[in-house]
């Protein structure tokens, strides 16, 4: 009897082992190592690393680029998260209906997700280019004044935010579409019989049933808002004068351009902790209000 239970346990652990080993090796161990390293100075050939306590964190408080990156990132998150989710929902509602050319529209919406971000950024780079860019040509046709979208501090951040929102929306649409199709059709029939308007049906039936998906998408959107920086390398490289420097981009620069690995570790810890907190809040607060079927 005990033998069989033991064997069951062993079985379960053995099955879990590969995934756990990978997680520990590539996620948990680096995270802990990063935390430890954030309390040491950056090793150089002539000056080995020493324990410096919270010095790297003091440096962060005094680093104006860190604060700017943080502010930029908050605006970036505020710009991408609600728009990409709203857009995704809207697109999913549309392509959930039957109409001619539906497959084509679905594919069109999903294309941005399939394309690599670097390729996307290169397309948008020319899209934004003054004079020859598509955007400028369209605006020019309406007699608008030429504008250097990526090259001025007022618009650069907004310009890179739009690219990210556009890229995200198609991906989230897929989840919404799947969730919409899982809603039993008899609910719609019942609503029609009761004479509910389409808006009422959406607000009272569809949207509540989509809440688990919305939570999932929201968590992903928040992570993406702090993770998506590929396009920054192509579009602006953080410029003009750090106007589009996001947190992760700043970490990359500090870590792999400046080779100040100790300070980069401290920055990484801050990013990790804030993301973990955000996820906890999202699950803690929203989960209670979600109706799982």
């Amino acid at each position: 009897m005990i033998d069989r239970r033991m064997r069951g346990w062993l079985h379960a652990w053995l099955l879990l082992l590969p995934a756990m080993a990978l997680l520990a090796l590539f996620t948990h161990w680096p995270a802990v190592a990063t935390l430890v390293d954030s309390f040491y100075s950056t090793p150089r050939a002539r000056r080995p690393s020493v324990f410096v306590g919270p010095d790297n964190y003091h440096q962060m408080l005094a680093d104006p680029i860190f604060w700017q990156a943080l502010t930029n990132n908050l605006w970036f998150a505020l710009g991408t998260i609600p728009t990409s989710i709203a857009l995704a929902l809207l697109m999913a509602m549309w392509v959930n209906d039957r109409f001619p050319g539906r497959t084509f529209v679905r594919m069109a919406f999903f294309t941005p997700t399939v394309l690599p971000m670097i390729a996307v950024a290169n397309i948008w780079l020319f899209f934004y280019t003054p004079q020859i860019g598509l955007l400028e040509q369209v605006r020019g046709a309406f007699g608008a004044r030429a504008h250097n979208w990526l090259g001025s501090q007022d618009t650069a951040l907004a310009a890179v935010t739009v690219v990210a929102g556009w890229k995200d929306a198609g991906f989230f649409m897929i989840f919404y579409l799947a969730a919409l199709q899982a809603i039993p059709p008899n609910l719609a029939e019942a609503a029609t019989l009761e004479g509910a308007s389409r808006w009422h049906f959406f607000r009272r039936v569809q949207f509540p049933l989509l809440m688990p998906t919305t939570l999932f998408v929201l968590v992903n959107a928040v992570i993406n808002a702090f993770r998506m920086v590929d396009h920054i390398f192509v579009l602006t490289r953080g410029g003009p004068d750090n106007a589009t420097t996001l947190l992760l981009f700043h970490i990359y620069m500090v870590g792999f351009s400046f080779w100040d690995t100790g300070y980069a570790a401290a920055l990484t810890v801050v990013l990790l902790v804030s993301l973990a907190l955000l996820a906890l809040i999202q699950y803690g607060v929203l989960e209670r209000r979600i109706h799982y079927r």
Binding site: L125, I132, G151, S152
Partner: peptide
Amino acid sequence: HPTGVVEWGTTPRAFFDGK
């Protein structure tokens, strides 16, 4: 000369297009 930051990558394109 254009105001703001002029993109390195698209400048040759502007030159080819006579801009």
